[in-house]
Structures are given as structure tokens and as C-alpha cells.
Design a protein around this nucleic acid. Structure first.
Lengths: 236, 236
DNA sequence: GGCGATTCAAAGGTAGCATCTTTACATTCG
DNA sequence: CGAATGTAAAGATGCTACCTTTGAATCGCC
């Protein structure tokens, strides 16, 4: 799952991507109510493109379970419970839209659920190189944090957490790296972070790294939980 | 996310669904290597359908990040790390294929991560009715478990866990109900379950239910962790 | 041998037509 | 008057033919 780009696909804007974006956002924001109908013909006129393009878009939205299409009826907007909420695009749209705060909270809770086990997994499965990098990143975090270089701190923090997910050896966890990235980034932008990272947080990162380096899953899990306690609190 | 059907869409087999199934399975199983190429023309000949249908299929597979298409090159199979592994269809394909055991383990680990927090969430956010139902389901589990009626036990167990996820109030959690359903079902089919559910397990279900009914998030989380400890062990 | 121009294969996009389903409406019969 | 049945139309599904755009690979020049 890749938030920024469609996997390997070249960034080259294909024609329909903007249509998907627009419709996806409308649906996710609630502007297009569940049960609401669209027709290919209508969309064709609205976006001034051929039917093929609209059809392609519909297939994609359908595959995200945002809509379904039925003969003689048209394209019907699905209720939120059907949406593939783990699809990177839907996550992005929800974070951009009015439901940002809500989505943010959900994702943070998901992080709190997953990251401790991911850390434990990393302590078990990480390669030697990954262990070394984790320790190194934690050190960098301290340096940058104490120096108050927040932007660089954020970048390294993202790298730290993404590496843990990857090293966990569980692809369901590593697929969430975009989620974690987005949440960390949003947390800073939204001013939910202290100006200077707290000593507590720096120490926790180091402790997690040490546990992973020392192949101690239980410690890694516990320390990660400590680390997340702060986060949890800020959102609740 | 719905494993069995595409949301509200009628079961009516649209033409391309079987093509998607076949190609999706080939990719997920590794039969079609990452970097491997397909062409629309080739697929057209292979499946004896028009270009339109193939294009629709490609859009869908592309939207799952299983492939990407490039002009002058064709349709290229993506590496596993790009796949939308939370897409219900991909989960299903992986569970059907040769990587079943591996996928099973990942999903179980995911359950262990998510369900405790979901239980805590349910203790906080469930409606009165949901709380009553949870308690009732736990009771049924005891009755069915002690009577050795395994099929019915499984059905109720699935209902129990799905309700927790739903009641958690976190849509990222409730979207995982298919995953949990599939894991529970597979666990029974694969003979990972004791013939008669253990007293320990029955008590844990009751304890979780009681904690939710009594609005005690911490207890719900702890009890759910106890419940999952057994599961965790069986898979590791 | 390296670098720019050319070629061309394959996807992207358009257009129009035929078909199939399902809904909505009208008609008929009890 | 109400239920069953027939019918028309709306709109998705599917096919074919044709043009455009892109970018990989080859060719040719320096």
C-alpha cells in the first residue's frame, strides 16, 4: 500500500486519475450520499471524456467498494461500512477531508494495536543490518530532538517506525507503513507534538531499539507500548 | 471489506470476474512472477473476450496494485510488497493458495494485535443492545462448547468476535471482520482446535463479555489478551 | 563507443453499435 | 379495486474499428 504513488506506476497523470480523485473524495466526504446514483452518461458529460474512461473509473471505484453498478439503475454509492478502508487512496481522502480528526483517531488506535507486536516481531525477525539501523536511527532521534530540529526529527521518526513494521516479518504490518507515516506527519502538522520531543519519548525509542538489537521481543513490545502511551493520550 | 461477495453487488457473475479471479490467483500464488509481462492482446486471445473486458480487469488488478501497465511495455506484475494485502480478494486468494499457512500466521498475529484494543473500544462504545448480545453470545458459547456442538460453536464464535470489532467504534477494526471470520473458520477446518473448547477459553469469552457489559475497557483488553494467548500459541 | 534521432509496439482514448437486465408503467383479468 | 402479466425504455455490459501517445529499442552519426 503506497499512499503517494500507485506502486511502481509512473507518476504520469493518466487521464482518469483526476476523475477518480474527485469522485472518491465526494463519496468519502459524504457529499455523495450512500444510495445516491450516477450514470455513465452523466459523468461522461460532466467530465467531457469518453465512455471508456468513465467505465475504467467506475471499475476502480467499484473495486474499492465505494460504488456498485447495476443495469438499468446506474452507479450506486455504497454505504461506508462496505468501503475498503485500508485502501491507500481512501485513507488519504479521508485524511484530507472533513472527517480528518475522526480518521486520525482511528488510525492512531490502529497504530497502538499493531506497533507493539510489530516491534516484538522485529526483535525476532530483523536482519543484522536492520537491527543496526534501528539503533542508529534512535541515536539520531536523540541528537535531532535535543537540538530541536523538528523537521529532520520527523523524517527520521518516520523511517524508524517504517523500518520496524518492515522488519516485523509480517506483511500485514508492513503494509501499514503509509498509515504510520501519515499519522506521524499529521501529528506534527496539527501541532499535537511538543515543541521539543520529550525525554521520555527519546528514551523509549532507544529502549525499543535496544530491545530489537538484543533480540528481546517482550521488552520491545513493552517499550513500544510505553512509547505509544504518550501518543494515545494526545488523541483521546 | 467483504470476502464472500462484492458488497451489495448482485452475485450475478459479470463476465470479467472469472478472469480477475484467475489472474489474481496466478499472481498471488507466484505462478506469475513479479516483473512478468502480459499484454491486452494476449489476454484477449487467451480468454476469448473483447479488449473492453480485459481493460476493465486490468484496471481492477491495477487498483489492487497487483500489476501496473505501461505503454509500449504491457502489463507488468508487481512485487508482493506493493500489493494491497488488506483487499478482501487478495486475502482470499492467499488463503486458498499455497501460501496458506504463512498468510494464516500473519492474519492471526494481526488478530492478536487488534482484538484486545477492539474489546477495550467495545467496552467504551458499544450500545446497550450490543452489550446484551455479547453476553448472550458468550453464554451460548459455553452451552455449545460443553455440548461439543462444534459447528454451531464456530458460528457463534465468529459472531462474537465480529460483534466486538463492530462495537469497537473504530472502522479500521470493524473492517477486519472478514479476516477474523476467515481465521476462525480456517482454524477449525485445519484441526487446530481442541475437540471440545477448553474451559479456559469459555471462561475468557465470558470474562470479555462481562467486562464489556460492565464498561470496563482495561479488563476487556486484558481478558481478550488471555483469550488470544491460546490462539497465538497454536500458530507459532 | 557513446549519444541523439527514428521507429514502432503496445497502452490510452474515442466512437458507435448491439445486447442484456431490470425497472416502471400500463394493461388485463379475477 | 387489486394482483398478475405484458411491454417499453433506461442504462450497464460487451464488441469492433480506429486514432493518439508514449517510451523502449534500434539505427546511424559523430
Amino acid at each position: 500500500m503506497v499512499l503517494s504513488s500507485q506502486g511502481q506506476a509512473p507518476a504520469a497523470a493518466v487521464k482518469y486519475s483526476s476523475i477518480i480523485e474527485e469522485l472518491g473524495r465526494s463519496i468519502v466526504s459524504g457529499e455523495l450520499q450512500p444510495g445516491g446514483r450516477l450514470t455513465i452518461e452523466g459523468l461522461q458529460a460532466r467530465f467531457k471524456v469518453s465512455r471508456t474512461v468513465i467505465r475504467d473509473c467506475m471499475r476502480i471505484l467499484e473495486s474499492m467498494n465505494l460504488v456498485f453498478s447495476k443495469r438499468r439503475v446506474g452507479i450506486v454509492v455504497q454505504a461506508p461500512r462496505h468501503w475498503n478502508v485500508y485502501d491507500a487512496r481512501i485513507i488519504r481522502w479521508r485524511l484530507e477531508g472533513t472527517s480528518r480528526a475522526r480518521q486520525f483517531k482511528s488510525l492512531t488506535e490502529l497504530r497502538c494495536a499493531v506497533e507493539p507486536l510489530a516491534a516484538a516481531g522485529a526483535a525476532r525477525n530483523a536482519t543484522q543490518e536492520q537491527r543496526a539501523v534501528v539503533v542508529n536511527l534512535a541515536q539520531q532521534l536523540r541528537t535531532l530532538g535535543e537540538a530541536g530540529r523538528l523537521d529532520e526529527f520527523l523524517a527520521v521518526d518516520i523511517e524508524f517506525h517504517a523500518l520496524l513494521l518492515l522488519a516485523s516479518g509480517n506483511e500485514m504490518f508492513s503494509a501499514l507503513d503509509d498509515v504510520v507515516t501519515e499519522v506521524l506527519r499529521g501529528r506534527t502538522t496539527q501541532g499535537l507534538m511538543p515543541r521539543t520531543p520529550r525525554e521520555y519519548s527519546l528514551a523509549s525509542h532507544e529502549a525499543v531499539a535496544a530491545a530489537i538489537a538484543g533480540s528481546d521481543p517482550d521488552a520491545a513490545e513493552t517499550e513500544m507500548r510505553n512509547l505509544l502511551a504518550e501518543v494515545q493520550e494526545a488523541v483521546t
